[in-house]
Design a protein around this nucleic acid. Structure first.
Lengths: 256, 256
DNA sequence: CGGTCACTTGATCGTCTTCAATACCAGTGG
DNA sequence: CCACTGGTATTGAAGACGATCAAGTGACCG
């Protein structure tokens, strides 16, 4: 598939492009066929002919850390495909309380709103690069390529399953179980195969983790400390976690 | 579209069939074209020719209150379409803690698992009737009728939005806000147009509501009492709720 | 009329939150 | 090289919200 593959999770990995192809003839030739994110994204559902059309419809953009690119409640004019970096997806209450509904990494497709406004906001956590499509062009592609639509259905169902698991976590798990579940989920997502990675790089802050797990920063921090004290994990700086006892961590996650 | 339409929410309403058609010629003629649930279900995405094939693939079943018809973790052999009654969808932790991820009423389509096992369980709340399809037949229909697939994508996205709202509720709202949100959501779902119904019939028990809102029975009960004491609602028996002050209830829901 | 079941209400307890102080780390400039 | 600064994480103490434990009420039913 794609070239380099790091054991890390959600790393920006921006520099894997092969400029050789892009410079052929001096013009940009089909950036999509060359995209790092293609193999893990809905774009993989489209054939080579379609890819040219996709490339024509796409606008590549880079984002600064913290930059918001989807605003909850705003008209849903665009679709996005993440090619590098990680975004936080969130919903807000009027008084400022925030719930992060998920983190979206490379290959993640965003913006398929039901209504004509976005149902959630999205911000870059670190530096990001995204592919932007207008609503009409994307809908045209969807109409034309059934495989794309099928892939989206598959993706949506998978996200629905994840969402249900998150509801179980938010509604019924303790702080310790939530953090353990979170770490395990990211360990699994970070490794290519099904085996959990031993070391995790967490691109998000404690505040993000707290808002994702329905806790406060302090409780997240205390839970980290507790898991470390119990020998389940080790912390190397704030953003790097090493799993020292996978079985015990799975146990601490509540068994589901 | 269909004939009778009650203001009530999730009412079993089993007896609206028109036996006249069924008795023509003495044999059952296309139960699908006659189905109460058709107009509100994915079946509406299929044309009349397809409906006959759908009918051939469908097996109608009735369920007792409390009967489980989807078991979490079991092989996903069937799809289901609810034609009458309400089901609770839930996930369990090994120690018995339960999170209800949603309630599914007439027209709701269930069982589209990502993996080959069901990701959640489903039980009848009251008496129910469902349409059952084998996995292979349903996949065949899906393959044949693109409109059906499109409808499913639309449904899945809508459920995803609902799930995100529920995450906000579970992660960041107080008990009072959760119950108010719950009542409002059902008021809106119960009425045909966008205007919230004034009276709600809740088919589920306090335990179900608690497991849906991530609370205990006691806290749900206390919150009901409190909302009543504040004049926002009135209770007529345990399962009938009248909204007395819609604006205040929306306010109590946390504004989102 | 006793039994069960669902709901309500009360008293106490515990987990997580809140408020507050301190530690840490990278970047900057003296 | 080291003090200063701002952002982020950790730790501590007090408080609140919801959970737990327990009792009481009411409806339905044999």
């Amino acid at each position: 598939m794609t070239a380099a593959s790091a054991p890390h999770l959600h790393e920006p990995r921006a520099a894997t492009h092969r400029p050789i192809v892009l410079e052929l003839g001096g013009a940009v030739i089909d950036p999509c066929s060359n995209c790092d994110a293609r193999s893990v994204s809905v774009c993989s559902a489209i054939d080579d002919d379609g890819l040219a059309r996709l490339a024509a419809a796409a606008v590549r953009t880079t984002l600064e850390p913290g930059q918001e690119f989807i605003a909850e409640g705003e008209p849903a004019t665009h679709f996005f495909n993440i090619t590098a970096g990680t975004a936080r997806l969130f919903k807000l209450l009027p008084d400022g309380r925030r719930q992060i509904t998920g983190f979206a990494g490379r290959g993640h497709f965003l913006g398929l709103a039901v209504s004509d406004t976005y149902a959630f906001g999205a911000e870059a956590i670190g530096p990001m690069s995204i592919c932007r499509f207008t609503r009409s062009k994307m809908l045209g592609l969807l109409d034309e390529f059934r495989t794309l639509e099928q892939k989206l259905l598959q993706t949506a169902r998978s996200e629905l399953v994840t969402a249900q698991e998150q509801m179980l976590l938010l509604g019924r798990k303790t702080a310790r179980e939530r953090l353990a579940s979170f770490l395990l989920a990211h360990a699994k997502a970070g490794s290519a195969c099904g085996i959990a990675a031993r070391t995790l790089e967490l691109p998000m802050t404690r505040a993000d983790i707290a808002d994702y797990l329905g806790l406060t920063i302090e409780t997240v921090s205390r839970s980290f400390t507790k898991l470390r004290g119990d020998g389940l994990i080790a912390l190397e700086g704030a953003n790097s976690v090493v799993i020292r006892n996978l079985a015990a961590l799975e146990d601490a996650a509540g068994g589901a």
